[in-house]
């Protein structure tokens, strides 16, 4: 039986069977280019306080910014000219990544509104089903829901009760842990 040769690229190809290298190159070039330009402009705007010896607060960031701008520029040229392995990215992937970012942002905000365990359970269900596209029957969805509650409660127990990370408390964790005065 012949073994399939594995390279990081082939793994990436398996990850993204449909997608465009151009979109990927454009996306990464825009993000990296924006970061470099943004940093250099703000480095130029820094006040240069006078110091007796050595360098002021502006010089080091300015040198770093210029290096960043140069390497990013050459890096973008390398990406555009195809001198770099670029993982293709498809519309569906962008959508999934965007939804994952939005869900994570909402999850972070919601732990203060409904509590850590409750928000974590909802977040886990939504990530599995929307971001990763898992389709579940009603019975399996209930099973996953229960597993997620158990995992979230276990995490709350480890981090809040044992390690004293002050996680926001919802009604479920108050009922289970607060009621027992742990």
């Amino acid at each position: 039986m012949s073994a399939k040769r594995v390279t990081p690229q082939s793994i990436d190809d398996q990850r993204a069977d449909v997608g465009s290298r151009t979109a990927s190159a454009a996306l990464s070039s825009v993000v990296l280019g924006f970061l470099a330009v943004f940093y250099v402009i703000n480095a130029f705007l820094l006040p240069d306080a006078a110091v007796e010896e050595g360098i002021g607060p502006k010089t080091f960031p300015l040198v770093v910014g210029i290096v960043l701008l140069c390497t990013t520029g050459l890096g973008i040229i390398a990406i555009v000219r195809g001198g770099v392995e670029v993982r293709p990215v498809g519309g569906q992937e962008v959508l999934r990544v965007a939804s994952c970012i939005v869900l994570f942002g909402l999850y972070t905000a919601s732990i203060f509104l409904i509590g850590f365990v409750e928000a974590s359970v909802i977040f886990s269900m939504l990530v599995s089903m929307t971001v990763f596209g898992v389709r579940l029957s009603a019975v399996r969805a209930v099973g996953l829901f229960v597993i997620n509650i158990v995992i979230a409660m276990a995490l709350f127990l480890i981090f809040d009760v044992w390690l004293h990370v002050l996680l926001p408390v919802g009604w479920l964790e108050f009922w289970v842990f607060g009621g027992l005065q742990l």
């Binding site: 994570f104 999850y107 972070t108 732990i111 974590s120 977040f123 886990s124 990530v127 599995s128 971001v131 990763f132 596209g133 898992v134 996953l144 997620n148 995992i151 979230a152 995490l155 981090f159 990370v165 996680l167």
Partner: peptide, 14 residues
């Protein structure tokens, strides 16, 4: 991974 990923993200948040 679809079931592992949310747990990793929750750990990242904590």
């Amino acid at each position: 991974m679809p079931f592992m990923a949310p747990v990793i993200l929750i750990l990242a948040l904590i």
